[in-house]
């Protein structure tokens, strides 16, 4: 099973360097692993444990707490239909049932062709746009049953590739911190009064 690629290992180390303590990079690195392999593999967790100086059990403990991390492979497209109250009031449940039929699977399972995984999820913060769903965390607001079926077809046909990357990819833009602009991680035990407070006439008072 895959660990980080050489390229991602470099990126992982750069990410770790942004944080005062390495363990803080656990979640970003788990996302990176999921981006690389589509789900979080055991080998990746072992690699992350090495990189962050914790045990694999600690990595699994964190990883398994968060529902976005998949320890088993999922479909290329993860469809999350919101059925929480605002969406329920405006047809979220019906939308879910419709998709269950269109895909012929129960929530929590993946189509035979490995294309789609369907999930019945809680509020996705689009309440005023109910009913709504996300595909690989891309939003589709106020979506009718027909539009939903059309979406499935497009995804199958690869017509939405530009909007909807494969599962595992979140933000397509990465934060870049140019070395010369970097202020650096504030490590506990290694910091004094910030200069701008020290030099301001309000040393003691400021923020205290």
């Amino acid at each position: 099973m895959p660990r980080f690629t050489a390229e991602n290992t470099i990126l992982a180390k750069e990410i770790i360097g942004r944080y005062p303590l390495p363990k803080s990079a656990l979640i970003p690195l788990l996302h990176l692993a999921q981006e690389q392999d589509g789900h979080v593999t055991e080998a990746a967790m072992e690699h992350i444990a090495e990189l962050c100086g914790v045990t694999p059990a600690e990595v699994l403990g964190t990883c398994s707490f968060y529902e976005m991390f998949k320890l088993e492979p999922v479909g290329k497209y993860l469809i999350n239909v919101c059925t929480n109250i605002s969406c329920m009031l405006l047809g979220g449940e019906e939308l879910l049932h419709h998709l269950e039929e269109s895909l012929d699977i129960r929530p929590g399972s993946t189509t035979a062709d490995g294309m789609f995984t369907l999930e019945d999820v809680e509020c996705i913060a689009a309440c005023t746009e109910a009913p709504c769903l996300t595909v690989n965390y891309r939003y589709f607001h106020q979506i009718s049953h027909d539009e939903a079926d059309k979406l499935l077809d497009d995804l199958r046909a690869g017509r939405r590739a530009h909007e909807v990357p494969v599962h595992g990819v979140l933000g397509k833009v990465r934060q870049q911190i140019p070395l010369e602009r970097r202020a650096g991680a504030a490590v506990p035990g290694e910091c004094e009064t910030p200069v701008w407070l020290a030099t301001s006439d309000a040393t003691e008072g400021a923020g205290a």
Binding site: H31, Y66, M68, G171, R182, A183, W196
Partner: peptide, 14 residues
Amino acid sequence: NFSCDVILHWGAGA
């Protein structure tokens, strides 16, 4: 003389 990195961090569903 004000220096501060802003680090984008994101959760994973909880």
